[in-house]
Design a protein around this nucleic acid. Sequence first.
DNA 1: TTCAAGTTGTAATTTTACTACATTTGGTGT
DNA 2: ACACCAAATGTAGTAAAATTACAACTTGAA
Lengths: 283, 283
Amino acid sequence: MNILEKITQNQAAFSKSEKKVAEVILANPQTAIHSSIATLAKMSDVSEPTVNRFCRRLDTKGFPDFKLHLAQSLANGTPYVNRHVDENDSPDEYTNKIFESTMASLEVARQSVNVNVVNRVVDLLTQAQKISFFGLGASASVAHDALNKFFRFNVPVVYFEDILMQRMSCMNCSAGDVVVLISHTGRTKSLVEIAQIARMNDATVVGITSAESPLAQECSYVLSLEVPEDTDMYMPMASRIAQLTLIDVLATGFTLRRGNKFRENLKRVKDTLRGSRYEKRGD
Amino acid sequence: MNILEKITQNQAAFSKSEKKVAEVILANPQTAIHSSIATLAKMSDVSEPTVNRFCRRLDTKGFPDFKLHLAQSLANGTPYVNRHVDENDSPDEYTNKIFESTMASLEVARQSVNVNVVNRVVDLLTQAQKISFFGLGASASVAHDALNKFFRFNVPVVYFEDILMQRMSCMNCSAGDVVVLISHTGRTKSLVEIAQIARMNDATVVGITSAESPLAQECSYVLSLEVPEDTDMYMPMASRIAQLTLIDVLATGFTLRRGNKFRENLKRVKDTLRGSRYEKRGD
DNA sequence: TTCAAGTTGTAATTTTACTACATTTGGTGT
DNA sequence: ACACCAAATGTAGTAAAATTACAACTTGAA
């Protein structure tokens, strides 16, 4: 944990002299890491052992160790924190906040991914007779994106926005078909029903959804992503991004499993797009 | 500059004993920052002054200062690097690589966003009579997502996948309409044509695309995102994510500009979804 | 071979951090 | 209000760590 934050938080628990030290350090941490314990003591107007005791209170071995921690905190430069957008934010502020909290969410999501399930699902997908991607609302565009990716793989892949089409498609499923259902909450009724229908028709159902949700319970495999969602905004933001990244992971796993020849095929698909594009100068 | 890299680069310029020190430090920098000069000297099988000289050669004031620099380098650890997926990667490896390179790309994208243009575009969007989002291929799902977001704002918003529908829709544009075109490369012919059609019909055209591309040249405003794309994979990955995040930024700017009452309205829109969902236990 | 420049080590010195103990402060109960 | 105790702080001495000065060794060119 960041030692600067730690100082700020524990500030109340410090003694009078320790508070002085904390103040001086927080006011100018850059100076602090380049000072000896004597200089810092003088700056804080306390004795050297007080500074030493201050360091130990923060669970460091002593002053040099404390400086090391401090140096690391400063280097980190507040990595990516989930800072919420505020009403009075300037465009510059909300732009940075959104990018940063998206990155922070991806970090959290990354840690929550169960790699074993990813591997198993990639297995399934490579062997599937037909792959379907369904999602509703904000997750529809994620399914749409998945279609785009897997379509390039030259495998039978299906995507519908329409609930009835989704249902009908699942009715026609058979063993060997994989249905991937995407929903952040996992509580959308119609999607849960679709999971049931697909399973009744022997399809394997993969859920990209919240763990232990009603949808998750109907799935054969669940890829759950723990994403802290900014509920102030009333719309999904980070969860979609995490879902998309997971789709990227699955797609990548798919191509890796299929091997070299398959990737050459991908390149061919991409080359066919060339006719629809303006050439880049110098190509 | 990162001192670890500096050690690696200068390695040739070091003397025999200094190389020993460099080796030991590079092999286990975590240990190094927690060792005294004596221990490190013993580990490297050299004398203490040699270690000290080594530190000075790297433009530090001495051993303690060197440790500080080292600690900072380790903390920095180049947070998220764009590491390419390798053929022999395990599921664990490629999952982490993809998440990390996505985060790295977002960081690059964040720095390349022109906030002034963002602000101007938010202006335009809030005043628009009608907003259209068009993209093709991988960018179609981004446009789809934008539809989803802006639809909640209760503004006239349009999205088509079909090229002909896109063209017809642009034919019917008039002053006050905003057309947002999404394309990573900015070289897709039909999208460039759509930009021209929209502009001919007095619409304002915003491009979320590569700077100085043919598409960018046809746009009234360009939101360019510099995203390092992994060309090995032959499919767009990070660029979509950056585009989506930018859409989030625009949507957020939109709601902020519209003020408090508007956000209450958003909440109402969200609440109407409740009927279609299973309640969360404890709600 | 010899000398000089560069490299490395030894030992002394200085700086820095830490410990043990003494003093002070502030609060509590009588 | 006073005595007493515990916590907090400082002083002075000690140990450890880093640095310096200098001596010894290596290496390569004349």
